[in-house]
Design a protein around this nucleic acid. Structure first.
Length: 285
DNA sequence: AATATTTGACCAAT
DNA sequence: ATTGGTCAAATATT
């Protein structure tokens, strides 16, 4: 018991230090981008450092001794065949064959612990390619919530997902909750295969949404982005947003551990975007 | 053809 | 029983 609590304390401390490191890296990232050097080699490095912290935090976070129970919970999702009677067919094609019968449709294990954080942004796209897999009306919410998973979930086993929901107070913005970190192999700038996510009307109104008031002064180039002009020399990568508020990052999950103060109010009115938020124009095609 | 989205059904957690 | 998250067939898009 003594050892247990001691280990726990160490764990907390380590986690605390990691989070601190992550915050510092994030701040450095901000600084760099403010000085226009966010895209150079230095920016690259900081991004990697930040990601490294993030991954480590995530790993540590999902670590638990698990005394007796089998560790089926987090990983399996769709692979874990959920035949209670142990029938256990091929997990691969078991998903194909369940006709109109009472099948095991929708069988899955819910993720318990994962690196989770929420940002609010007018931007729906980021560096990753997502595949929408669900949409749900949420109780007492005006707008539905949409569910996305990483496109490479099955090819690379990437477990990252995100949920997107329009804010009631500020319908031009979206609350975007990221669950889990990407483990897929996306080259840092993904040359040409970076499918833009098509968001349905349920999320995005048809009108072009730009929200000047909510964009902070962080991004200089952002303001003169010429939409649609897309000359052939134009790079698709137009701007990079990277300001993550350390206090906000991982807020949800870690607050339980550290009891960080309730700071959620602080995100209102702030333009928080996710760490990998790279806006890309839907040029040609 | 492959690949993405829509949408109701299904399941876990509450 | 209700709610939210996921699956997968049907459908749409490329």
């Amino acid at each position: 018991m003594d050892i247990v609590s001691n280990n726990k304390a160490i764990m907390l401390k380590v986690m605390d230090q990691l989070v601190q490191g992550h915050e510092l890296a994030t701040k450095l990232q901000q600084l760099l981008s403010q000085h226009g050097s966010g895209r150079g080699a230095a920016g690259d490095l900081v991004a990697k450092i930040s990601a490294s912290f993030s991954d480590t935090i995530s790993d540590l976070d999902s670590f638990e001794p698990i005394p007796s129970s089998l560790f089926t919970a987090v990983e399996g999702s769709q692979n874990a065949s959920c035949n209670n009677d142990g029938k256990l067919e091929d997990s691969v094609d078991s998903r194909k064959r369940l006709g109109p019968v009472k099948g095991k449709r929708g069988c899955y294990k819910r993720k318990k612990r994962a690196d989770t954080w929420t940002v609010e942004s007018t931007l729906l796209e980021d560096a990753f390619s997502w595949r929408k897999y669900g949409k749900k009306e949420i109780l007492n919410a005006k707008f539905p919530r949409s569910y996305f998973r990483c496109t490479h979930k099955y090819t690379q086993g990437c477990k990252a997902t995100k949920q997107v929901q329009k804010l009631e107070l500020e319908p031009r913005m979206f609350s975007i909750t990221y669950i889990g970190n990407h483990t897929c192999d996306t080259d840092e700038v993904t040359p040409n295969i970076n499918p833009c996510v098509h968001h349905d009307d349920g999320i995005m109104d048809s009108e072009e949404f730009k929200c000047p008031s909510l964009r902070t002064s962080m991004n200089e180039e952002e303001d003169n982005h010429h939409h649609g002009s897309s000359t052939e020399s134009d790079l698709q990568l137009v701007w990079q947003e990277m300001l993550v508020f350390g206090e906000e990052h991982n807020h949800h999950h870690h607050e339980a551990i550290y009891g960080c103060g309730e700071t959620s109010a602080s995100i209102y009115g702030l333009d928080t975007t996710d760490l990998w938020s790279w806006q890309r124009f839907p040029v040609q095609r």
